[in-house]
Amino acid sequence: WVPTKREEKYGVAFYNYDARGADELSLQIGDTVHILETYEGWYRGYTLRKKSKKGIFPASYIHLKE
């Protein structure tokens, strides 16, 4: 896992994603996520609506905010 280059990196989910394991994070369309790390097509972070739950999710489900 590699920390993100920018201190504040955010994105928005444009697909729903159902977590398949305890380390994964479920997403709903429109969720804003804070991205902490990246690795081979995956991000690690949390949604702003539930900051206490961190997990991994596919990068392809996220539109990055500039």
Rank of each mutant, 00 (worst) to 15 (best):
W1L: 08
W1C: 10
W1Y: 07
V2K: 12
V2D: 08
V2R: 13
V2Q: 11
P3H: 04
P3Y: 04
T4A: 15
T4W: 12
T4M: 10
K5I: 09
K5T: 13
K5N: 14
R6V: 11
R6P: 14
R6K: 13
E7N: 14
E7A: 11
E7S: 14
E8A: 12
E8K: 09
K9H: 10
K9R: 14
Y10D: 03
Y10R: 06
Y10A: 04
Y10E: 06
Y10T: 06
Y10L: 07
G11I: 05
G11H: 03
G11E: 03
G11M: 05
G11A: 02
G11Q: 04
V12K: 05
V12C: 12
V12D: 01
V12Q: 04
A13G: 01
A13S: 05
A13K: 04
A13P: 02
F14V: 15
F14L: 15
F14S: 08
F14M: 15
F14Y: 11
Y15V: 15
Y15I: 15
Y15K: 15
Y15Q: 15
Y15D: 14
Y15C: 15
N16A: 13
N16D: 10
N16K: 12
N16L: 05
N16C: 12
N16F: 07
Y17L: 00
Y17P: 01
Y17M: 02
D18Y: 12
D18H: 13
D18S: 12
A19Q: 02
R20V: 10
R20M: 09
R20F: 05
R20E: 07
G21N: 15
G21V: 05
D23K: 06
D23L: 08
D23F: 08
D23H: 11
E24D: 04
L25F: 01
S26L: 01
S26V: 03
S26F: 04
L27D: 00
L27C: 06
L27S: 02
L27E: 00
Q28I: 12
Q28W: 07
Q28D: 06
I29F: 05
I29Y: 06
I29T: 06
I29R: 10
G30P: 00
G30Q: 00
G30H: 03
G30A: 02
D31K: 02
D31V: 06
D31P: 03
D31W: 06
D31A: 04
D31H: 02
T32G: 07
T32L: 15
T32Q: 12
T32P: 07
V33Q: 00
V33G: 00
V33A: 01
V33N: 00
H34D: 00
H34L: 14
H34I: 15
I35T: 01
I35F: 03
L36M: 09
L36N: 04
L36Q: 07
E37C: 10
E37F: 08
T38Q: 13
T38R: 14
T38A: 12
T38K: 15
T38S: 13
Y39S: 13
Y39N: 13
Y39W: 12
E40P: 10
E40C: 13
E40V: 07
E40N: 14
G41V: 05
G41K: 06
G41D: 07
G41W: 05
W42P: 00
W42I: 01
W42Y: 05
W42M: 02
Y43T: 00
R44C: 14
R44K: 09
R44D: 00
R44P: 00
R44N: 03
G45V: 04
G45L: 05
G45T: 02
G45F: 07
Y46P: 01
Y46N: 05
T47C: 13
T47A: 12
T47W: 03
T47R: 15
T47Q: 08
L48Y: 09
K50Y: 13
K51A: 11
K51G: 09
K51Y: 08
S52W: 14
S52D: 14
S52A: 09
S52F: 13
K53N: 09
K53W: 06
K53F: 08
K53R: 11
K53H: 11
K54R: 12
K54S: 09
G55N: 00
G55L: 03
G55H: 04
G55M: 03
I56T: 06
I56G: 02
I56R: 08
P58Q: 03
P58W: 05
A59E: 04
A59S: 13
A59Y: 03
S60H: 12
S60R: 14
S60P: 05
S60W: 07
Y61H: 15
Y61A: 15
Y61V: 15
I62T: 02
I62R: 00
I62S: 01
I62V: 08
H63M: 14
L64D: 02
L64M: 06
L64E: 03
L64N: 03
K65S: 13
K65P: 07
E66N: 13
E66F: 12
